[in-house]
Each structure stands twice: as structure tokens, then as C-alpha cells.
Amino acid sequence: MTSFLHTTIQSACKTLSAEIKGIQDLIEALKKDSYLSTMFINAVNLLDNNKGRVILTGIGKSGHIAKKIQSTLASTGTPSFFVHPAEAAHGDLGMIQPGDIIIAISASGETEELSHIVAHTKRFDIKIIGITSNINSTLAKNATIPLVVPKSNEACPLGLAPTTSAIIQLAIGDALAVALLEKRNFTASDFGLYHPGGRLGSRLKIIRDLMHVKEEIPLGSENMPIHEAIMEMTRKALGCIGITTKDGSLIGLITDGDLRRTIDKDIRTLTAKDIMNRNPLIVDQDLLAAEALHLMNNRNHPVTCLFIVDKNRIPIGVIHIHDLLRAGIA
């Protein structure tokens, strides 16, 4: 059993090493091959300036890789979908319109099923990015932008099953998607728009989606007697009250903790300005909810509520730590 496990782990490590070498070959090619690097930059610029959709296509293992790249592009703000090349020849070519861009993937560049799609691009002057390892292939010669990746040894000991070649295809696709994401300054908030569900969706929610607004915001003036401040805090039930100037800008904050610290004083003689925190923690409405929770849990100065203000420090919302926990931000 030990010998079997040892041999099996050796096989696994050999496979991973072969695939790592394939990625390393791709990195070196992007650094040293001026043709590949130029074509890569052109591909990113073409996708960035595109007003239509991006259509991914490929068959077999390349088709599976194409579907994954399509999913990555869609989730990062690029309208895209997958077209099966065999189905394209039976009507699905109608899904591809002038103004779209095609990313076609084929290791050999001679996949017969892609011929109808290539012909369609010529007929309607549709741009095509071809990902292949054969610079002399039909796909490379007919692509608007050929991305000719290194041809590395397959991890499969028979040299037949697409393994390393599939990893390289996936890697160049991910590299395109991330370079495009960075070129467009795509933010975590933008990413959250395309991932509203599940655990990831919770982490990517932003403050403005969760904050209390308008009449729900507890507010008072700096000259407000403390007992009136307590009544406002009780009505809004958020454990805090924002103190504002006559023009409405936030200048302070009173919390339940501030009230407890005045228990040995005569609150009948106190006003809001006597006990308020004059340097309250304020945030922007586009802050990620997860970041807000991190700010609240600061070990030196933990807080239970945050005020959200505009550029003039006018309160536009307030959020309590319980709002974040109920939304699954933890």
C-alpha cells in the first residue's frame, strides 16, 4: 500500500510539474516573444474598445476551457457567451452579429468544426482572436489577432490527453480577462453587481445597500438636551445619534457607551455637545460592507455604528453592526 501511494503521489507531482512548466513557458514567451506580447496587447485593446459581445468557441477540451473563460469575462463586466461550433453550423451562427468579437480556441488550429465560424467572420467582417499553439494553422492565419502560445509537452504520459495544453489555454484566457479588468479599473463593488448571491455576494455588498436612510437616521443638534437625545436614540433604536450643525453637517456622535459614561453626572444640565464624540468614524456609501465590518471591529477603537456622509459631511445614512451580521457579512 505504501509503495502504491508513493507511486501515485509521484505521478501526481509529475503531472503538476509538467503543467507548471507549461505556465512558465507561457510567461517566458510573453516576456521574450515580441510577437506574442504585441498580439496580447492588441487583443486586450480590441476587447476594451468592443461595443458588442464576446463569443467564446471551441470543441472538446478547448470548448470546456472556452466556457470557463466566457464565465470569467461575464463576471467581470464583459457581455459574453459560448457558441458550440457544431451547433453554429446548424443555425447558431445567427447568434454572432457584426460588432461582436470571437475568441476561438484550438490547440492545433485545425479544428474542422471551427471552419464555419471562421467563414462567418470573413463574411461579416467580425474580428476573431485565435488561441492556438500552431502559428501555421488555419486558425492562426485567419485570426485578426492570433495568440500563438507555446507548445509544451502534455502531462499525459501518452502525450495524447490535453492536459498541459488545456492549462495554457486557460491561463492565457485568465490573463486576458484580468488585464482587461485592470485596464477598465473594474472594482470590487463592480464585481459584486455580477455576484449578488451566496457567500461571495454577501461579502461584496456595499454600504448603501444596507444602510438606514432618511427618517430612520437618528439626528440632533449640539445644543439638544441629553434627555431629548436619549428619546431620539430610543425611537430610532440604533444605539446612537448623529449631532449636526445648522447647515446639517455632522460634527459629532453619541452612543450608548457615551451615555453610560455620564451616569455619575446630572444629565439635566448636559447638552449633546458636552458628551459627544467630536471625531466620529464616517464612511462613503460605496464602501464594501466587509470593509465596514473590519473598521467597526478595530481592536483599538471598536464601534457599533457608522455614519455615512456625502462630500459636505451631510448624513445620508447610518448602519449598525447588527445590520451587517444579519446580511451575512462576517
Rank of each mutant, 00 (worst) to 15 (best):
L5H: 03
L5S: 04
Q10D: 12
T15C: 14
L16T: 07
A18F: 04
I20S: 14
Q24N: 01
D25V: 06
D25R: 06
L26H: 12
I27M: 14
E28N: 15
E28D: 15
K32Y: 04
D33M: 14
S34V: 08
Y35V: 14
L36V: 13
L36E: 09
I41L: 10
V44F: 01
L47P: 02
D48Q: 08
N49S: 15
G52P: 03
I55F: 03
I55S: 08
T57A: 13
G58W: 01
G60T: 05
K61H: 09
S62I: 00
G63R: 10
H64S: 12
I69Q: 02
G77W: 15
S80L: 04
F81K: 05
F82R: 09
P85Q: 07
P85K: 04
E87Y: 07
M95W: 01
M95V: 02
I101R: 06
S106L: 11
T111G: 05
E113D: 15
V118D: 14
V118C: 11
T121K: 15
T121C: 14
I126T: 07
G130T: 02
T132F: 15
A140H: 11
K141I: 10
K141P: 10
A143V: 04
L147Q: 03
S152Y: 11
A161E: 03
T163F: 03
T164S: 12
D174I: 00
D174K: 00
L176T: 10
A179M: 05
A179H: 05
L180T: 04
N185G: 02
F186P: 08
T187P: 12
A188K: 05
D190E: 09
F191S: 07
L193E: 15
H195R: 12
P196I: 07
G197S: 09
G197N: 05
R199S: 12
R199A: 06
G201S: 11
S202E: 13
R203C: 00
I207D: 13
R208I: 01
L210E: 02
M211N: 10
M211H: 05
H212M: 04
V213I: 09
V213P: 09
K214G: 09
E216K: 12
E222W: 02
H227I: 11
T234C: 10
K236V: 02
A237S: 08
C240K: 05
I243T: 02
T245A: 10
G248P: 13
L250I: 14
G257F: 11
L259K: 02
R260Y: 00
T262L: 14
T262C: 15
I263D: 15
I263R: 10
D264R: 12
I267Q: 07
T269Y: 14
A272V: 06
N279V: 14
I282Y: 00
I282Q: 07
V283T: 15
L288F: 06
A289W: 02
L295T: 07
L295Q: 10
M296S: 04
H301E: 15
C305I: 03
L306C: 03
I308F: 00
P315N: 13
I316E: 10
H322I: 06
G328F: 01
A330C: 06
A330S: 09
